[in-house]
């Protein structure tokens, strides 16, 4: 996508957003571990594993599509 203009790939921005959001959601899930919110199936601690998935995917995108200096 960036051949002509050397634009940072959109996937890098996707990765940044997923990583940031994932980290916030995991932190929120850990903070409420002992006192989960009154949602259905709160005992499954969805924020922790869902947020972790976002962190892993976001991190992967950031590494794979990080801006590189053009030679």
């Amino acid at each position: 996508m960036s051949d002509k203009h050397h634009i940072i790939p959109v996937w890098f921005f996707v990765g940044l957003l997923l990583l940031t959001y994932g980290a916030l959601i995991v932190a929120s899930g850990i903070a409420e571990w002992q006192n989960p919110p009154p949602t259905v199936l709160a005992n499954l601690h969805a924020p922790v594993w869902w947020g972790s998935l976002m962190v892993v995917l976001g991190g992967g995108y950031i590494i794979a599509f990080r801006p590189r200096r053009s030679s």
Partner: peptide, 15 residues
């Protein structure tokens, strides 16, 4: 969304 998502996940859904 309100049934299954607590803080954090709710923000993600609304976003």
């Amino acid at each position: 969304l309100a049934r299954y998502c607590g803080p954090g996940l709710m923000g993600l859904g609304v976003t």
